[in-house]
Design a protein around this nucleic acid. Sequence first.
RNA 1: GGGCCCAUAGCUCAACUGGUUAGAGCAGUCCGCUCAUAACGGAUUGGUUGGGGGUUCAAGUCCCUCUGGGCCUACCA
Length: 571
Amino acid sequence: MARILITSALPYINGIKHLGNLVGSQLPSDAYARYMRQRGHEVLLICATDEHGTPAELAAAKAGKPVAEFCADMWQVQKDIADGFRLSFDHFGRSSSERNHRLTQHFAERLAGAGLIDEVHEKQVFSHTDGRFLPDRYIEGTCPNCGYDKARGDQCENCTKQLDPTDLIEPRSAISGSTDLEVRETKHLYIRQSAMRQHLDEWIDKQSDWPILTTSIAKKWLHDGDGLQDRSITRDLDWGIAVKKGDKDWPGMDGKVFYVWFDAPIEYIAATAEWADANDLDEAAWHRWWRTDEGADDVRYVQFMAKDNIPFHTLSFPATLMGSGEPWKMVNYIKGFNWLLYEGGKFSTSQGRGVFMNEALEILPSDYWRWWLLSNAPESSDADFTWENFQGGVNKDLADVLGNFVSRVTKFCRSKFGETVPEGGQYGEAEAALTAEIQTRLIAYEKAMEDIEIRKATAELRAIWVAGNEYLQHAEPWAKFKTDPDAAASVIRMALNLIRLYAVISRPFIPDASDQMLAAINLSGTESWPDSVKAALTALPAGHAFTTPDVLFAKIADEAREELEARFAGS
RNA sequence: GGGCCCAUAGCUCAACUGGUUAGAGCAGUCCGCUCAUAACGGAUUGGUUGGGGGUUCAAGUCCCUCUGGGCCUACCA
């Protein structure tokens, strides 16, 4: 038995996430965690909301709520939706937690003690009307290069030229539109990533099994231009973690907070501490997941995230952990995802384009989404959600192949033998061949899950479902029943055992359907993973009672699909 | 401007460090079955692997170039 620590990238607090966000980290992390738990490993799956930063403050203002209240409410909303998708987080924390405040301040103290923090005076744009400093991209104006009048302070979207806010002609606040701006001097802390470049480079070089997507992004940052740059880790904001050295004040840094990207990854650790607190466990209980000197040495730590998050997880966060000089657990494997597109374009919150998590659950049960999103996960390149593909995939895989299998077997049995596993006859060559095929495919499925190759895993799982239909077709229990009822009985006994097997091994992807299948055959969700397919296919003995279930997966009709296409086309 | 990634059947994707006639699923066509959610099974059509050039006994796989997408470029997160 191994111990596996899994973290999903933290969803930002400013609104409800769309399907792309879901499939980019939370959903695959859940399937992986569920699989590893079923295999008997000790798993800790951690996620949390990422609550600090300018967008959170603006979203709160727009909602007319104090930031703390807005974040608390939105956390609950996200938590409920995560539950709706059956995301099996051991803890869903908050980056604004007391634990994270203390840990973040602790790391800052350690880094300062190691000489890895610089205090830098710099000039930033302050908006009197908004009463806040503005991040570069919250300043708009006319591009000095091409004359585009909605250029942002960091870059002109029209001519792609990189800009400094002071380059803009007639700069204004992107928040209020105010031109009452002033360049003010302010002081911020920088983490000296440049001083850790060598260490980070060597550490990245050791990760030979990481995907190109992951290492190439890290290498780019490490070697491009002058190499890895120092990075500001504080901001002039109200909402956030106060800049302190441990529990001591930081002279000259009153009223400032840590930058969201400094404190967010630390929340992975803090959320584990929150988990221990929530379960009345002691400090050692979470240290054994994170401190290599207290038992975490044999933990395998896997992170799930979309590609935009990779620099922070390959460089910034490791720099924080290394720089502390303390024995914190470093990530063993980073699973990065590309983007999910919606009907060929980007999901857009502002234009209402695409499907958001809350809407998805109103339309169909979570298993439909889980299956389609995971079997089409953007692993090797961007993937495209279209209602046509969704309808086709769900109808074929879930309704026709799996759902119909359960239906045809249970209904046939009920009408010919009654609602118990029939006795008579015995397994022969056909059953041996089926068992062998499933055993081979199961091994491939397990390998894909170990390697976190999600699409490959779903393809193998589907092939195992198909094998059941193939078997039935060739065994023809409906024909055998007329001449040799015992032979038909053994086929159906096998088929009912297949339902049980399917319920167990499909659980990481479609947990609700798994429960329904198990309930139908009077079992619970605690059925163990099949070590031997042969043994697993005799687990249900003759005489075991079952209940013919309702339709597992209803098909999505063409009219319904067209309606959904129109509804989510956006403005 | 610089860097990285991608381009394979109508659609969605495979193909270990270059190695037999480039494979699946879906859609299409034909046949079979009738237990089942008009479901299932079998067979089959379909690709000069974006264009061009090169290296090699051998290239989807390596190199160059062109075209078309995407991402990153450090103060959104």
